[in-house]
Simulated assay, not measured.
Amino acid sequence: MVGGIACGRLAEERKAWRKNHPHGFVAKPATGPDGSTNLMVWHCIIPGKPGTDWEGGHYPLIIYFSEDYPSQPPKCMLPKGFFHINVYPSGDVCLSILNAATGWSPAITVKQILLGIQELLEHPNPSSSAQFECNKLYMQQDKTEYKRRVKEQAKQYPALI
């Protein structure tokens, strides 16, 4: 069965998420046109942490799992053009726990991935920059323009309530 181990693990993750997940976060498998559930693609929402420049934003993320999951990390995608040092223009998230060579462990859960990305929003890693302009603004002593752009971006992703 293609993705048998991956699908089994993701079914368990889905069950665990439904029982206990952080407030304001959303993570659910995609639904096909025929109403079927696709455990290999999850649609998520990551809320900006209160008290940060990211507050108020509810950032859409898609997680793509391969049939090699959990041996290999999933691919996490924010919207194209997302303004963040560690997000490529394509939307691909650059985070150590998502890197098979440096930080991935099969024990890492969807919940840990989402919390890790939320933490990355406020605490980027300039040494692993994916966007030159964003990194340049962040590294300046006066981060006024960086903060302004982050707050503007938060307004682009309001809660869907």
Rank of each mutant, 00 (worst) to 15 (best):
P79G: 04
V93W: 00
S96A: 14
P89R: 09
G91N: 07
A107R: 07
T109A: 08
W104T: 02
G116A: 13
F83D: 03
S90W: 09
A107S: 15
S96K: 15
G81S: 11
N86F: 00
T109Q: 06
F82A: 05
H84P: 12
T109C: 04
T102C: 10
P106D: 07
P89N: 12
K75V: 13
S105N: 11
A101C: 08
K75L: 14
N86C: 02
I97L: 15
C76N: 05
I113K: 00
I85Q: 00
S96L: 11
Y88L: 11
G116W: 01
G91V: 05
V87Y: 01
C94I: 06
N99Q: 15
P106Y: 03
L95G: 01
A100H: 12
M77C: 08
G91Y: 02
Q112E: 15
I108Y: 03
L115C: 07
A107M: 09
L95T: 03
N99S: 14
L95A: 05
G91S: 08
G81P: 02
N86E: 09
S105E: 12
L115Y: 04
Y88C: 09
Y88E: 12
T109N: 00
I97H: 01
L98C: 08
C76R: 03
I113S: 02
G81D: 02
I113E: 00
Y88R: 10
P79D: 01
C94V: 09
I97C: 08
L98S: 08
P89A: 10
V93C: 09
